[in-house]
């Protein structure tokens, strides 16, 4: 293809590829971006304002202020929840990666004509209620249940049970966000030409070296996207901790939820939300930069 080789350039100058009338573009953007500004950005500002409010003495009613001490109070009281949140969701993310990779690899390279069907099965859990699926783990991990008894027989459980322990919470988190790990991994693996793996084998790489030097690096964008899509929702989740854990396993999501909806301590709850988001965004940007996939979005 001659002269057209810089096809980006050429389409930029034609009418069809990319159009130059920005006015139409703004008209297309206004409703959606307007919505996101009013119901995402403004709420974050509102959240920040609320996090600095001071009590009026009346329960659930606060006034505008600049009470930075709310943050100190929130951290002092809830730092264990923060630590637990990041430990639980970190472990769950690693577990999900380990579990999801073989399945994604299988679907991408070995599934043949079953590929489409298997992908449907991966997203199928979304068709069943998140809450009910989580609740079902209470049945599966029940104290008298098969799984708990099996592990007890091997004396592997420090508390002689799984339910209402951190193990159940981590298992629940791993399970619930697994499809979010599988899909981006699959998308990245699917783009790898299987002949590359054969070429690696041809060039004296053992299957393991071939994987380490060829497949793994090429799948990194999927790994980054998958770990983010798992870690972010897991770290703010409180459903698993509530349904599967003991009161001592509560996460920061629980703290935000109870402060907002039960104690009606809006400033503390807002401060907690704000800290959580700040930590996650910092982690996300550092991670994306380190992984070198800034065009993730």
């Amino acid at each position: 293809m001659p002269a057209m080789a810089p096809s980006k350039k050429s389409s930029a100058s034609t009418g069809v590829g990319v159009r130059r009338r920005p006015r139409t573009a703004y008209l297309l953007l206004i409703p959606g971006l307007g919505w996101l500004s009013i119901f995402f950005v403004v709420p974050l500002i509102s959240l920040f304002a609320t996090s600095l409010q001071a009590p009026t003495g009346k329960n659930g009613v606060y006034q505008a202020a600049f009470q930075v001490s709310n943050y100190a109070e929130a951290i002092a009281e809830y730092w264990p929840q923060f630590v637990r949140s990041f430990i639980y969701s970190g472990i769950a993310t690693v577990l999900a990666l380990v579990i999801a990779y073989p399945l994604a690899y299988f679907i991408a390279f070995r599934a043949g004509k079953w590929r489409a069907l298997l992908l449907v099965l991966v997203v199928a859990p979304f068709f069943a209620s998140f809450l009910l699926r989580t609740y079902a783990w209470r049945t599966i991990l029940a104290d008298e249940g098969f799984i708990t008894s099996f592990f007890n027989m091997l004396h592997l459980l420090p508390e002689q049970r799984i339910l209402n322990t951190p193990i159940a919470v981590v298992l629940g988190l791993t399970y619930n966000f697994l499809p979010f790990m599988i899909l981006p991994l699959y998308a990245a693996l699917e783009r790898i030409d299987p002949r590359l793996i054969e070429a690696a084998g041809d060039l004296y790489a053992s299957p393991f070296t071939g994987f380490r030097k060829v497949v793994w690096p090429l799948s990194l964008p999927g790994v980054v996207a998958g770990t983010l899509l798992t870690f972010i929702p897991a770290s703010g989740d409180y459903i698993n901790a509530t349904l599967l854990g003991a009161p001592s396993d509560r996460m920061v999501g629980n703290a935000i939820q109870t402060n907002f909806l039960q104690f009606r301590d809006y400033p503390i709850a807002s401060a907690l939300s704000f800290i959580l988001m700040a930590i996650i965004l910092t982690l996300v940007f550092v991670y994306i930069r380190r992984a070198g996939t800034e065009d993730l979005v």
Partner: peptide
């Protein structure tokens, strides 16, 4: 603006909107 809502935990999305509606 498209990316941020996906990188924000649901508790934060929910609680910030509630903060707005309350205010």
């Amino acid at each position: 603006l498209i990316f941020l809502p996906m990188a924000t935990p649901e508790v934060v999305l929910g609680s910030s909107l509630l903060a707005l509606f309350l205010n």
